[in-house]
Simulated scan of single mutants.
Amino acid sequence: MQSMSIDNGQKSADGLVQRFDKSLEEFYALCNQLEPCLRLAYECLSQSFDSTKHSPTLVPTATKPDAVQAESLPYTQYLSMIKSQISCAKDIHNALLECSKKITGKAPPNQGGL
């Protein structure tokens, strides 16, 4: 009689351990699914902050002067800012292109004074 109760106790303990192991495995699986979502959310938030920080202020779209927002730029200033940003991007592109040509050996060496 007593061996039967010990045997039942062992079976129920094994069942609890198996259930705990299965629950723990499901928990880790959910954590693994959640991790990329959190990384993506962090990247989106970071990109949003950078975009807000580095983007020009708004251009007014209202036709009435009293409806213009205080932090917006006049269109002419906006155009000059965009032109300077494009010029800067071209300069960076050309510098990177020149550097990559020097690294791969496709550019002729400088004939200047070095």
Rank of each mutant, 00 (worst) to 15 (best):
T76R: 08
M81T: 13
S55L: 06
C99Q: 09
H93S: 10
S80I: 04
F27Q: 14
S72D: 14
C88D: 13
L16D: 13
G112K: 15
T76P: 03
L45N: 05
K102N: 05
D66E: 15
P65D: 09
V68Y: 05
D14T: 09
T52C: 07
C31S: 07
E25L: 08
L30H: 13
L97R: 06
C37R: 11
P109W: 00
D50N: 12
K102V: 02
I82K: 10
S12K: 15
A62N: 15
P56N: 15
Q111D: 03
P74V: 01
D7Y: 01
L114V: 13
K90M: 08
T61N: 09
S51E: 04
K90N: 13
T57M: 05
L45R: 05
A95L: 02
A67K: 02
C37E: 09
E43M: 08
D91G: 09
N32M: 07
A29K: 08
E26R: 04
L73I: 01
D21W: 04
N110V: 10
E98T: 12
F27L: 11
M1P: 05
S12P: 00
L16C: 15
L40K: 13
S5D: 11
T61V: 06
N110W: 08
L58Y: 09
P109S: 02
Q47I: 02
A95H: 02
I6A: 12
H93C: 13
E35M: 02
L34G: 04
Y28E: 12
D7V: 12
T57C: 07
L97Y: 10
D91H: 03
